[in-house]
Design a protein around this nucleic acid. Structure first.
Lengths: 121, 121
DNA sequence: GGACGATGATTACACCTGTAGTCATTATAG
DNA sequence: CTATAATGACTACAGGTGTAATCATCGTCC
C-alpha cells in the first residue's frame, strides 16, 4: 500500500465519508480551508488512483470514485508508524507524554479508564 | 519551528541521544539500515542547521552539532498532528483503535491504568 | 614542502507534492 | 448542427526530500 500524502488524505476523508462520488462532488466536499480548485482535486484523484488508494467505475463519460483501502487500515498504519518512531512502539509512553503536556482532561482519563475496563471483561 | 522530514529525524534522534557530535560521529551512529554515506549525513546536518533544528559550534576546522529543539516539543507536535487529523483531536479513539487492532496487551492495559490512577492523585 | 585525508560548502538530480492550466472529447442546449 | 460545458488526460512548475559527488581548504605525516 503506497504512502498517501497529507493533501491526498483530505480527499480520502471525503470518500471514506461518502462514496461513490464524481470529481466535482468530491471538490464540493473538500474542506473549504484548502481553497482548492477543481483542477487540484482532479490531480489528487488521479494520483490516488495511480497509487491504488481509490477505485473508479465509469458512469457515462465520467468516473465515480470510491476508496480502495479501508480507513481503519490506513489509520492503523499511520498511528503505528508514529508510535514506533517516537515511542518505541509502546502506547504507554504516548499516553504519559500527552498527560504530561496537559492534553488529557479528567474527563478523558475517565473515558479511557472505562474503555480499558471494558476491554478486560 | 520548521518541519523535520522523516530522514532528518533519524539524525535528530542520534543527537538527542548524545551531543555534541561531529558529522563523522553522527554518521557512525545513524542506524545501519539507512545505509547512508557520510555525504548524505552531511547534507542532513546542513539542512537541519538551516531549519534551525540544530546548532553548531566550531571546533578547530569542524563543527560540533547539537539539537536546537527539545525532543519533547517535537514529539508533542507530531503526535498532536496525527491525533488531530485522524482522531478528531481525541486520544480515546486512538486507544480504542489500537485496542481493536490488538496492539494492546493485557500488560499494556495494566500499565496504562496504573498511569491514569497516578494522574488522578 | 608536498601528498593526503578530513571537513564544510556547493552542486546534482530524480521523485514526490501542492497547486494548477491546457487539451481533446463528448454530451447537451438551442 | 453548432457553440458550450463538463470531464479525464496530460503538462507545468516550484519547493521539499533522499541520496549523493565534487570542490576548496586546511592540518598533518613523511
Amino acid at each position: 500500500m503506497e504512502r498517501i500524502a497529507e493533501g491526498e488524505y483530505a480527499v480520502m476523508e471525503v470518500l471514506w465519508d461518502e462514496a461513490p462520488l464524481t470529481a466535482a462532488e468530491v471538490a464540493e466536499r473538500v474542506p473549504a480551508e484548502r481553497g482548492w480548485s477543481l483542477a487540484t482535486v482532479k490531480t489528487m484523484l488521479s494520483r490516488l488512483l495511480a497509487k491504488g488508494a481509490l477505485a473508479h467505475k465509469e458512469d457515462g463519460r465520467r468516473y465515480l470514485y470510491r476508496p480502495a483501502i479501508v480507513r481503519e487500515d490506513y489509520v492503523a498504519e499511520e498511528s503505528g508508524r508514529l508510535i514506533d518512531r517516537m515511542f518505541g512502539g509502546r502506547l504507554t509512553p504516548l499516553v504519559a507524554h500527552l498527560a504530561a503536556r496537559d492534553r488529557l482532561s479528567p474527563a478523558d482519563i475517565e473515558e479511557i479508564e472505562a474503555l480499558l475496563r471494558e476491554l478486560k471483561s
